[in-house]
Design a protein around this nucleic acid. Structure first.
Lengths: 171, 171
DNA sequence: AGACTAATTAGTAATATTCCTGACTGGAGT
DNA sequence: ACTCCAGTCAGGAATATTACTAATTAGTCT
């Protein structure tokens, strides 16, 4: 997805192209991976120091709504991330370190068929995230002696979190 | 799902049953529908006035992690809601009014098969939410004269939001 | 180029959510 | 009943996210 294509999507939705909006889009386009709202803000302020939080959040939300941007992450431990929606995809999210791994499977088409029969509901989007632990973070977790235990150990979990926050530069 | 069953799930996970935790579970069990964290807190404080935000949030997160509670909503406009996970289900979420409508479809089983092949990733859960507009809220949106427009209209959207916030008692 | 209108923005306030620390407790084993 | 320790809690601080308002601007039509 290039800037021209994105701009035409904006126009079709009746949205304007402001310098701020263009900067946000460019930032996402230039990025190698999904960014948090804060990372976008930081980057954009290099050019427009006075851009506000609200502008960044609002634009990320709007761009998500028209399908130009993918929004990753439930309200689970880590911040939301945003990426240009080149193709439609979902993600594995590591609950240990926050790593996001793309998945090229989308279950929505099969599911959508059976909906909207009884009560009307105009569907405009969906989210599908898979949670778990990558190999590195899984090592922190104690499987325990009892096979019925699911290995939840607060202390180890906290250790893992602390290291991870360092790794991800806090927040 | 009754309290006894939930308690045994807690034990299997190595978690304790504290008065606070029991209260939170009871509140969710007694509720007719999904509750926000704030609603849970408010209800629980009738019995334990000094219970903290953190306790409520932490417990809802832990209960979600062991599958006793379903967590509903992405970081999209409305707060997260929580409900006892009687059976596994997902939800339609109205972006206009926040209404949550359960759906008895889960695409995860079919999708999960193809994963974990290349790189190891221990899956512990997933989330699937469908977004759109219910009949009532859809009426607020202007389809516009151009069929290629997707009907996004900031002014109307704001109107709708304002009314809805009143309806949902603010926040 | 000038006027008009809906969309957008900066700045700020209000919420929501998570994190941290030191004190406390449930429950398993004596 | 006593001990012990991992798990928990309350309280408060730190972040993340959303909401509001008055002023500004992009884009359309003349």
């Amino acid at each position: 997805m290039n800037l021209n294509r994105i701009v035409s999507r904006l126009r079709n939705a009746g949205l304007k192209l402001t310098p701020q909006r263009e900067l946000i889009i460019s930032t996402l386009l230039a990025s190698g991976g999904p960014l948090t709202a804060r990372e976008v803000l930081k980057s954009v302020r290099k050019t427009q120091p006075r851009i506000s939080f609200d502008t960044v959040y609002r634009n990320l939300a709007v761009l998500s709504e028209i399908g130009v941007v993918n929004r990753i992450n439930l309200k689970v431990r880590f911040n939301s991330r945003f990426e240009i929606a080149d193709d439609h995809r979902h993600h594995l999210v590591c609950l240990g370190c926050g790593e996001v791994r793309p998945v090229n499977l989308c279950p929505f088409q099969e599911v959508a068929v059976g909906l909207e029969k009884d009560k009307p509901f105009r569907i405009v989007g969906h989210a599908f995230e898979i949670y778990g632990y990558c190999a590195g973070c899984d090592a922190f977790r104690d499987p325990g002696p009892d096979p019925d235990r699911n290995g939840y150990t607060a202390e180890r979990k906290r250790q893992s979190e602390a290291e991870v926050l360092k790794k991800w530069g806090g927040t």
